[in-house]
Structures are given as structure tokens and as C-alpha cells.
């Protein structure tokens, strides 16, 4: 067995240097709710934990509304939500702006693990861990999330929908890490929703999860995003199924078509949590639910989680 060392990054550049010097066995430590277990059970060779929790860039949580049309000339703030990669989940779902504009994110982060897990676990860690069943990833996909990444080669942005490349594998290069997650401001008449199916009420891994974002102009769907979890080697964005919803009202027939198309697009396996057939059926049910919920929220209705 090798030594396990701990280093607290003093700056973003310091973190990059620590990761470069530490090589393959150096890992970013955010909430530690996946990593500490993996290191302890030696499912992953880890010799250096690089703690990124004491950086302003990774702890930011800020929402800026789109600049109003009557704002003075020259007045412009880049709109949207910035969530630092090390911000614990309780801060995410406890934030009034997140609650108002990004409901799918609240619903997913509120049921990841229990209270004590939510005191530490992060969106950045959930994404970087790249589990096919990760709960927040479909929500982040549906909300158009983008990972802001830094590394020895500079900075870049990776859409959450393109981030995961396989179970536990991601588009990150060695020395690269996520600094924050960015979400565009939702359209004025829009709503989002997230749901999962688990056999227990809490503290369980999703058999299937699903998330939707819908925007409307009049009765017509003007924008749609849909994503699924636990039905493929990676969380799955469904751009084609979502695109078919755009340009028409969201009636029962449209919802049924989307549910059936999502079911067909899923590539689930049978395992201890559920069979392939059960998962396909659940996809249809959950897609119907998140679409209806997102639409109701877009109409301004209060829909509980």
C-alpha cells in the first residue's frame, strides 16, 4: 500500500500544479463522499487528495437575472447561474434564486444521499464521478449546464451533455478540473422538473431518473430539453426527442409520443436494481411526469417536488 497525502490548494493555479506533479494518482477532493470511499476501498489508486474547497472560484454561488430591456445604455451583467464546483448541495437547493429558476436542480440535489451527505457532496463531484445513475447530471443537462474547466492547457467549457464518456469516465484531461458549473437564465415562460424511481423512499441509487426543461410562447413549446439517467453507460441527453416537442402545443398526444420515443432511445441493462423492460417502462412514465410538471411550472403553477 502507498501513502495517502492531503494538500489544500491555495489557488486555482496551485491546484493545477499539485495535480500535474501528483500525476495519475492525484485526485481532486471536493465533498469526498465518493472519493474517500473509493480511496479507502482501493477501488481507485489515490496517493494525493487535492482539496479545492477553500478557493473563491469553486465556492461561488451567484445568479444574475437577464439585463432588463429598459436598463441604461452600457449596463450589462452576464446573466445566469454560477455554481462553484465545491459548493455543497445544501447550499444549492437552499438558495432562493435556484429555487425560483432551476427547480430540476433543487429536486435532484435534495435527494442525493441524506442530510449528512448533502452537507458535503457537490454538483462538480457528482458530474466528475460520471456515474451512469448520477442524480444531478440529467437535471444539469436539461437546464443547459456547462462545466467551466481549467488545466495546465488553459480554460475551456464543456457542456454537461458532452461531459461523460463512459461509466466513471469523462472528457477531463489529466490536470484538468471543474471550477464551476454555469446555467443560462431560463426563458420567462419556462419550467423544469426532475424525478427518479427508487424502491426505497430515500438513500438509494436511481433505477431510472429523468429531467425536463420546457419554454413556451403562447401555447407553443419554444424550447425543450430532456435527459435520462441509469439507462445507458452515461447519463443520456435526448435532443431529438426534445426537438420533436418544439413548435406545437404540449398536448397528451405529444407527451405520449415523447415518452415512447424516450423509451426507445434508452439503452438500459438488467441488473440487481431493475430489468431492462422495467427500466424502459419507467422511462416512459417518468418522462411523462417531468414534462407535465415542467409545463405546469411554466404556467406559473406551484407544483411540489
Amino acid at each position: 500500500m502507498q501513502a495517502l497525502k492531503y494538500a489544500r490548494a491555495a489557488s486555482v493555479d496551485d491546484a493545477i500544479r499539485l495535480l500535474r506533479d501528483g500525476g495519475e494518482a492525484a485526485r481532486v477532493l471536493a465533498g469526498g463522499t465518493d472519493l474517500i470511499v473509493q480511496a479507502r476501498e482501493r477501488r481507485r489508486e489515490v496517493h494525493l487528495l487535492v482539496d479545492i474547497k477553500r478557493l473563491a472560484e469553486t465556492m461561488v454561488l451567484a445568479y444574475h437575472a437577464p439585463t432588463p430591456p429598459d436598463a441604461p445604455p452600457g449596463f450589462y451583467i452576464y446573466p445566469g447561474l454560477e455554481v462553484g464546483a465545491a459548493v455543497p448541495l445544501y447550499r444549492v437547493y437552499g438558495d432562493p434564486d435556484v429555487q425560483r429558476h432551476y427547480r430540476a436542480l433543487v429536486e435532484a440535489s435534495h435527494v442525493i444521499g441524506g442530510t449528512a451527505i448533502q452537507g458535503r457532496a457537490t454538483l462538480g463531484g457528482n458530474l466528475a464521478n460520471a456515474s451512469p445513475a448520477a442524480d444531478s447530471i440529467p437535471a444539469m443537462m436539461a437546464l443547459g449546464g456547462v462545466a467551466r474547466v481549467v488545466g495546465a492547457g488553459g480554460t475551456r467549457e464543456i457542456p454537461v451533455a458532452e461531459f461523460c464518456t463512459g461509466p466513471g469516465r469523462s472528457a477531463l484531461q489529466p490536470t484538468e478540473f471543474i471550477v464551476s458549473l454555469y446555467f443560462p437564465p431560463p426563458a420567462s415562460r419556462s419550467g423544469s422538473a426532475w424525478e427518479r424511481f427508487i424502491p426505497r423512499n430515500e438513500m438509494d441509487i436511481a433505477v431510472v431518473n429523468a429531467a425536463a426543461y420546457l419554454a413556451f410562447e403562447g401555447d407553443t413549446v419554444s424550447e425543450a430539453r430532456l435527459a435520462l439517467g441509469a439507462v445507458a453507460p452515461t447519463p443520456l441527453a435526448l435532443p431529438d426527442v426534445a426537438a420533436a416537442l418544439v413548435g406545437r402545443p404540449l398536448d397528451d398526444a405529444a407527451i405520449d409520443r415523447a415518452s415512447a420515443a424516450a423509451s426507445a432511445a434508452a439503452r438500459p441493462i438488467s441488473d440487481m436494481r431493475g430489468t431492462e423492460a422495467q427500466r424502459r417502462r419507467l422511462v416512459g412514465v417518468l418522462v411523462g411526469r417531468v414534462l407535465r410538471k415542467a409545463a405546469a411550472r411554466a404556467r406559473g403553477e406551484e407544483v411540489p417536488a
Partner: peptide, 25 residues
């Protein structure tokens, strides 16, 4: 491994599992 809560402590006002926190943290 974070599943049972027997190790619960309060860290800077938040409930956490002390088995999932490094002492150095």
C-alpha cells in the same frame, strides 16, 4: 462508507458523516 450515520458530527454548523471527512480537512 457514508451509509449508516453512526459517525454523525456537526462540522461548522452542518451535519456530516465524520467517516467521509479527512482529519486534515
Amino acid at each position: 462508507n457514508g451509509n449508516c450515520g453512526a459517525c454523525s458530527v456537526i462540522l461548522d454548523g452542518r451535519l456530516v458523516n465524520s467517516c467521509l471527512v479527512m482529519a486534515a480537512e
